[in-house]
């Protein structure tokens, strides 16, 4: 604890001591549990009295859990991150931090780590539910690990987007608005582009739809989960085949692409946030 970033320590203490965080965590877990229970019951009912301990049920509940967890993390991460620095400005505590020996990189990484720690807490709290699907069958440990990686990569990206907007705005509500607008644009615009581009630019996209789709949707965690599920059944866990101009190439699996793209844009958002807070820029400190 001695060498822990003080910003991270304060954020964790501050968040976990408030009833809001406790109820947020409880509410999200209750939601995920309810959805998985309903799905499991529906699946059991549809089997008309047969044993429900089969791979299909386990897999359905597992996917439902993954998607619900992803939605919850996609809401929690930007919401918490967007308020982190803008909220300090609103509370008028940010100037006092700038006057200490904390460097902009310490401040930004402390804020990112605090939000990620909360997301990790949430995802970890889901582990018993995930374990049930693993015990039912139809899901292997590698699949479980990959979906956790996609969820946490997506949480990291959305946290960094939230922190970036937090450095640019004076109020938490504005930062939250911009963060959600950015994320929603990514989630909605990319699938539309994937559908529209082969029609608009058939020479480039029509023949290589599968490849372009994978590359463009690598940043889209929902698409990534679906594609990963498909490819896990047919291809290797680490690689998959891409078709470019009629030739087949072996490239990284979709989840690896998702991880790489998320980390790249997360790092970019962190660098931009640090630049905003650097006094020489004359923007972050005023």
């Amino acid at each position: 604890m001695h060498n822990l970033n003080p910003i991270l320590l304060r954020e964790l203490r501050g968040r976990l001591r408030t009833p809001r965080s406790y109820w947020l965590l409880c509410g999200a877990l209750l939601l995920v549990t309810t959805i998985s229970m309903l799905l499991y019951s529906a699946d059991y009912a549809s089997m008309d009295g047969q044993s429900s301990f089969n791979g299909t049920s386990g897999h359905t509940v597992f996917l439902a859990l993954v998607f619900t967890a992803l939605i919850a993390v996609n809401v929690i991460a930007p919401m918490m991150a967007a308020g982190s620095i803008a909220g300090e400005r609103e509370r008028q505590t940010f100037d006092l931090i700038l006057l200490t020996q904390m460097r902009p990189i310490d401040i930004v990484l402390g804020k990112v780590a605090a939000t990620m720690a909360y997301c990790l807490l949430f995802v970890t709290a889901l582990t018993p539910l995930m374990a049930i699907t693993f015990l039912i069958g139809g899901v292997d440990i590698g699949e479980l690990a990959i979906q956790y990686i996609i969820i946490m990569s997506s949480a990291l990206l959305y946290t960094c987007i939230g922190v970036y907007w937090s450095t640019r705005t004076q109020t938490a509500i504005t930062a939250t608005g911009y963060a959600f607008a950015t994320i929603l644009s990514m989630l909605l615009v990319l699938p539309i582009l994937v559908l529209v581009l082969p029609t608009l630019l058939p020479a480039i996209f029509a023949e290589n739809t599968n490849t372009w789709m994978h590359i463009m949707l690598a940043i889209h965690p929902y698409a990534s989960i679906i594609f990963t599920q498909e490819s896990l059944r047919t291809a290797s866990i680490w690689s998959e085949a891409y078709i470019i101009n009629g030739s087949t190439f072996v490239g990284p699996a979709m989840w690896l692409l998702t991880m790489a793209v998320s980390w790249f844009w997360s790092c970019t958002a962190v660098v931009l946030s640090i630049r905003r807070l650097t006094p020489d820029s004359g923007k972050g400190t005023s």
Binding site: P6, I7, R10, R13, E88, R91, T93, D95, L96, L99
Partner: peptide
């Protein structure tokens, strides 16, 4: 900054921190 101690016109509050924790946070920073 190392030479200056600044007390702004408004007292920024961190919820749920004790007086000791408040000073400890800035001392760590």
């Amino acid at each position: 900054r190392n030479l200056i101690g600044y007390m702004p016109d408004t007292f920024g509050v961190y919820e749920s921190m004790t007086a000791t924790e408040y000073l400890d946070f800035y001392a760590r920073c």
